[in-house]
Design a protein around this nucleic acid. Structure first.
Lengths: 327, 327
DNA sequence: AATAAAATGTTAATCGATTGACCTAAATAT
DNA sequence: ATATTTAGGTCAATCGATTAACATTTTATT
């Protein structure tokens, strides 16, 4: 493969000049720039990013550590992160921690080895302080960590409120909130808090149901949902803390022959593609995933450039009405 | 961050010795190995992969170019690829070409810049020959390209056959095959061919319906499905070339009030999580995504080590019976 | 005791690009 | 006419790790 030197020779200049063209530094005439660019084209030259990063002491890679990849929410988030990073000339080093803290630690080391510009944690982070002072920033999306320079959230409380209010407005009297759970306190927990607050205020019967954490990885909530619905047969409104859970609620309701939205109304959370692929389609709370991804990438880039960034960013959510509620 | 030299000083040896420990070369006593490892631990040393790759002239990164990320099939594939790569000590450089050939070209250049060990193309590849002789191998998953050292496929024809046979066995008389389409010949096309062959042999009425290519990116087939089902009101069996399309068939059937599987039976393709999240769950053709991903990674690694690899690998599919067919 | 193998050290080049320090001309401005 | 800006070139160190070539010392083998 051609190197800087090859380009320089071809263009009849020195490597310094070529480097100046590439990095846009120093004084350069249009003519020289053109000569150099012609040479680069002819040789199909592409700078060696490894050498560049080594020399510049910083890479244009952002580590993304997520507990799942094919989970609809995380798949969507990863897609948006890739897009946002590419737009800014960065690339993604994708790491699937599988909710395993030792794997997470290994991946942090991997990122460190690759001198990433920063790490974005999605939905989960343990990361002991051992890993913080390592020359690059951490950003969290929808998870708590004092180690992060920036935490990006959607307004979970507002989401829970919108969901509860809408179910009540649609005439539900016996509500249930389903939520997945892992072994740490999550920002998403305030969805349940809001749900509780609104239900209490409205004098409505309600229950908060937390799954065992084992279900999170398999993503299979059927048994748990079935059990709960049989236990609370009067249920006429359900708020699921993800569209993934909501989709399974639809299945269970079909099995136990309760019609949605006639007998039971349902609201999900996330507004991922899945919510438009079920029958009926899921009324849900829109989480601004695209914007969250962009903010996260932006925070990494700014922070690795030593700019100060807001250490908490909360983005608004909204109610998306589809077919699983009467209104 | 600590460097090789720091470790060497701490352990009281030279950088050569440390490097020997890391790369397991030359003669080394257990005692020295231990001393060096202790020093690495104490310093939380992690070798700089950039420098390593630069020096070794090859990185442990594999480029993955896919037309989608959040599409359930590709999300699943990416997840498996990440897993397979990690197992072998490699990492993934994730590129979303969005079905855009010029973006694809840019990403190939990006991979080249990063001196990847190879590129895995998923579901789509144009890549003119300009890009082939670049020192690293291409591998294709479910797409045709003479430029690739290896093409990994599932047995698409068998899949189409299994689907058609099962629908006929379940009593369907008026079949339809839906398939997405893009602007190139795809291995998946033989699903339709098999469907055609079996239907003809069985004297069954059938139609192959191809979507316009515009639907592939939006992933929205509703209008197209509705239009087709209204045009062929006798339809009692549908083979969709992906679970994503099948999920939308379920929705349209609900809208036009045709029951699945009572009035219309349905078989999808891929066996991704989505097929277990719809109501009813989708009977589908299992594509061995995990194995395909592992084969692809293996092919890249072997091929970049100049080993010869099979230039076509076809993996078996199977029928997964769920709720969208009577049997 | 002689020889071979094992266990390190020494030195320095290499991978490819960046960049600081310094130098030289020509072009432009005052 | 002098000072300043612009447009480069020259040289060499640097980023961090790898590795070839060779040297030296210790240990094991015959």
């Amino acid at each position: 493969m051609p190197t800087l030197k090859d380009v320089a020779e071809k263009a009849g200049v020195t490597v310094t000049t070529v480097s100046r063209v590439i990095n846009n530094r120093g004084y350069l005439s249009e003519e020289t720039k053109h000569k150099v660019r012609m040479a680069m084209d002819e040789l199909h030259y592409r700078p060696n990013e490894l050498a560049r990063s080594l020399s510049k002491q910083i890479s244009s890679t952002i580590g993304v550590i997520t507990p799942h990849i094919s989970h609809p929410y995380f798949a969507q988030l990863i897609s948006r992160l890739e897009n946002a990073a590419t737009k800014r000339g960065f690339k993604i080093l994708l790491c699937n921690s599988k909710e395993d803290h030792s794997l997470e630690a290994e991946y942090i080391d991997l990122c460190k080895s690759n001198r990433v510009a920063g790490i974005i944690f999605c939905g989960m982070i343990l990361a002991s302080e051992q890993y913080t002072q390592k020359g690059f920033p951490f950003v969290a999306i929808e998870c708590n960590s004092p180690l992060c320079v920036s935490t990006i959230l959607c307004d979970n409380y507002a989401g829970g409120r919108l969901a509860a209010e809408h179910l009540i407005r649609c005439g539900c009297k016996n509500l249930i909130h389903f939520s997945g759970i892992i072994d740490q306190e999550m920002p998403g927990d305030s969805r349940a808090q809001a749900f509780t607050d609104i239900c209490q205020k409205s004098n409505v019967t309600f229950n908060n149901i937390w799954t065992g954490d084992s279900t999170y990885y398999t993503m299979d909530y059927h048994e748990f949902i079935t059990h709960t619905l049989l236990k609370y047969p009067l249920t006429d409104g359900i708020f699921a803390s993800s569209d993934l859970i909501a989709a399974q609620v639809i299945q269970v309701c079909a099995e136990i022959e309760r019609k949605i939205p006639k007998d039971i109304q349902l609201i999900g959370f996330d507004d991922v593609a899945l919510s438009t692929l079920t029958t009926p389609q899921i009324t849900t709370i829109h989480q601004p995933i695209k914007e969250m991804a962009e903010m996260a990438v932006e925070s990494i880039i700014k922070s690795s450039g030593l700019e100060t960034v807001p250490n908490k960013i909360v983005l608004p959510v909204s109610l998306i009405k589809r077919q699983s509620t009467k209104n």
